[in-house]
């Protein structure tokens, strides 16, 4: 079975709790009231709507009946405004967010780089975090040592490698997170845009490593606001808007259209 990602009418909505929705007492009182009172019209339509019974819970429809196929060898870029559903999409593909609405199939080993900390413990040193990560992947002693060397060589942190991660600059954290995530050679790599925090030297190295990885790995899904990066790295770009696909195609076409829409927007708002 080859590596692939398939989505069919996949929707994902998540609750956002504000203030009193976190309170057990207030939730019980509210539910008791709403069961007595006639049901109010809750849904406003669109991306945000209040949960039934009003209150402080907002439901965000982050992915809305989306269908998509990504096959082996594709390097897919996701573009869209903040809140278009790009990061949620990566979390859903990574299996962190689950939804029973529609079909989501992921075939292959997945690794996701979602935030620079990548679940690292800031109190531990870089080396200790690498060991913990190896433990998470159930590596034996030899592979742990190999991973440690690999990450140490790639991240080029010098003496900082043995200092707690909380002392690192954001660029240093990114280097170690990137090295860790790419070391296990996943078949599917999901990346959020933060890794661009590195300097030019790091970006060149990262690109070389990614290209190397793409040869062995099969699918890369990348979100970014940097259009040049997407043009260079991707073979396909998906433009997302309000949890749906607005445009899906070769990077040139999609990014030109995306840029054009941005410019129109800019003209619209200019006096």
């Amino acid at each position: 079975m080859t590596t692939h990602i398939t989505l069919r009418d996949y929707s994902l909505a998540f609750p956002v709790f504000k203030g009193s929705a976190r309170s057990l007492k207030k939730t019980i009182v509210r539910q008791a009231r709403s069961s007595l009172a006639p049901v109010r019209e809750a849904s406003v339509g669109g991306v945000l709507h209040g949960a039934a019974g009003g209150g402080d819970t907002v439901v965000v429809q982050a992915i809305d009946r989306l269908s998509l196929d990504i096959g082996a060898g594709e390097r897919v870029g996701l573009v869209g405004h903040n809140g278009a559903g790009k990061s949620t999409m990566l979390r859903a593909l990574a299996g962190i967010y689950e939804s029973a609405d529609g079909l989501l199939q992921v075939q292959g080993h997945v690794h996701a780089l979602l935030d620079p900390q990548s679940g690292m413990n800031p109190e531990l040193s870089g080396r200790e975090n690498v060991r913990l990560f190896a433990c998470r992947l159930q590596y034996d002693r030899a592979r742990t040592t190999a991973l440690e060397r690999d990450v140490e060589a790639f991240a080029e942190l010098g003496a900082f490698f043995d200092l707690p991660v909380r002392l690192y600059s954001s660029g240093m954290t990114v280097r170690i997170g990137f090295a860790l995530a790419t070391a296990p050679r996943p078949e599917i790599l999901l990346m959020d845009e933060w890794f661009l925090a590195g300097d030019q030297h790091f970006q060149d190295k990262a690109r070389a490593r990614l290209e190397d990885l793409i040869d062995s790995a099969d699918i890369l899904v990348l979100t970014s606001h940097s259009l040049p990066i997407l043009r260079r790295w991707c073979t396909r770009v998906i433009w997302m808007e309000a949890g749906r696909i607005r445009f899906d195609g070769p990077p040139g076409d999609v990014l030109d259209a995306y840029e054009a829409s941005q410019n129109i927007r800019a003209v619209d708002f200019s006096p």
């Binding site: 689950e98 989501l104 080993h109």
Partner: peptide, 18 residues
């Protein structure tokens, strides 16, 4: 999600309605 060793069988994950 686990990233198994290269020797291990690839995993399959499905969500939602079969």
């Amino acid at each position: 999600m686990t990233v198994p060793a290269p020797g291990q069988a690839p995993q399959r994950r499905e969500a939602g309605v079969a």
